[in-house]
Nucleic acid binder design. Structure first.
Lengths: 164, 164
DNA sequence: CTTCCTGCAAAGGGTTTGCACGCCT
DNA sequence: AGGCGTGCAAACCCTTTGCAGGAAG
């Protein structure tokens, strides 16, 4: 897949669906923020700069469409909002997420070790594993500094809702 | 911790809080369903049979309290509802969850391999990992049977919301 | 009597849906 | 024409919150 946009256009065409201007705008927003994990609202705000008449419902419908199409992944870190990232199925390995309980920042990391876990599970339970979600909660390097020395863990109780 | 109820009572007392009849009811419901992962609504309905005047808000407040106390774990599988299970912190190893995309059933399994992942992450990123959530999505043995042979994966698109 | 706790009802916030109109084939 | 797709606003649903009354130390 050299051009993600054309790739998505074709995947849509296979189902007699079109990459409309609105959908393309949403897609471009995601591509332009490949390093982050945007909420629907954030996508909406950004997309609006480029296509002012676009509606939030369309953003939701588009993200949902892309997710079902397998080109976007939905990430639910238990914050009460879903986050989205461009990530076509089968495009290399899974990546997992590190979520800072203090500032909410989300980092990614690659790890293949999970394959072993999955296979063990399949063997032991008969479950057929199709996908997974691994979230690690903790404190990013920055947020470890401030109050670093007292026994009180700065576990912000309300936000980021902690481990899901 | 031989008696979970007394354990919780003491934990609460440490913070000048009480194990009220309502809270005890909620706790008992959780204990009586240790094998499942109830939603707040389900806890509420069950608890109501035992204490009809109990309100849903109290159930939410209690579950939240227990979660902050570390005796209950909140599980968010991206369904749009949170699920809760009695699971005191430090009571043995983590357990993870297997979620059937077809019937929504949630199985648990134990795995320690994640410690290695966590330590690798801490070393490589400087993140301090405090907790984690591992969800495996797939098909339980039962749901593999029905349409087992056609290429069509019975990936129920709407429910269980798929991988989070 | 002061603090903790509850029930009720209302508010809140993210997401979905109904509907009428527009667009592309 | 016949779908597909969109915008708007309303509807939904889970969860939280404000408030006034109650119970416990």
């Amino acid at each position: 897949m050299s051009d993600p946009i054309e790739y998505v256009r074709e995947r849509l065409a296979q189902q007699d669906q079109r990459l409309t201007p609105q959908r393309e705008t949403v897609l471009r927003v995601l591509l332009d923020h490949a390093d982050t994990h945007l909420t629907a609202e954030e996508v909406y705000l950004e997309a609006r700069n480029r296509a002012p008449e676009l509606g939030l419902a369309t953003v939701y419908r588009t993200l949902d469409l892309f997710a079902r199409l397998g080109v976007v992944r939905r990430l639910d870190a238990g914050e009460g909002v879903a986050r989205y990232e461009f990530h076509p199925e089968g495009a290399g390995h899974y990546h997992h997420h590190l979520i800072c309980l203090e500032c909410g920042q989300i980092l990614e990391f690659e790890q293949d070790l999970l394959d072993r876990v999955e296979r063990a599970v399949e063997r032991e339970t008969g479950f057929r594993v199709v996908d997974h979600s691994l979230l690690l909660f903790g404190l990013c390097p920055n947020c470890q500094k401030p109050s670093d020395g007292d026994g009180d863990r700065p576990r912000s109780d309300r936000e980021a809702s902690g481990p899901a």
